[in-house]
Amino acid sequence: MKTLLIKTLSIIALLASAALHAQDAPLRVGMSGQYFPFTFVEQDELKGFEVDVMNALGEEMGREIQYQTANFSGLFGMLESGRIDTVANQITITEERQKAYIFSEPYVYDGAQVVTREGNTEVEGVEDLKGKTVAVNLGSNFEALLRELPYADEINIKTYESNLERDTALGRVDAFVMDRVSASQIIKDKPLPLELAGPTFSQITNAYPFRDTETGRALRDELNQALTSLRDNGTLASISEKWFGTDITQP
């Protein structure tokens, strides 16, 4: 009789928690939809590594994921003004961003990579950028990385909202700097005459930023838990293999 009661109670509790879980507000995730192969659109369908990882996280957390696309320059404004809960757009953890936001555990480990037009022998690594025009995405972390170089004054940095790989291929700029993974992907998949120039020059870790508020911290902790499960059960690695042919989710 007693065990029956306990069983009944625990089933009720389980159902209740499941019901509560289902009632959890959807996680609102911002992304640019313009960062191949992390987030992009094909025939009206939002796709990419970020989308796959976020969907898996949502499933793990029992939350629906609501995607909100906007130009990159608008994403942090949306986060700041509470219109989204986090940004899934390869956001690199930096000191400055850490002052304003709290971050989840990193889910991508990568490095900054110089990319030039195919056959460019003048730029064969980051040390050759002296006196050159280099494109970076507006608001991305790569501009700060370039400015940290000892010869930063001699680099002409040009910021782009989008299409910087195209301008590099056209020869309008000498090189662009992007993360190695997506640079390799662009070169592999797209018909643009580009090549990697030298090794990566700075390790970066990417994570999800949240507002530093009570709800923000709670969401961050919840997501961290889901992230650990996905890492342990191999889901993260397999999503990475699918998109990049290599596991970028490990250091």
Partner: peptide, 9 residues
């Protein structure tokens, strides 16, 4: 258009 172009290049 921007998003589609980013997907197809």
């Amino acid at each position: 258009t921007q998003k589609e172009a980013a997907g197809s290049f």
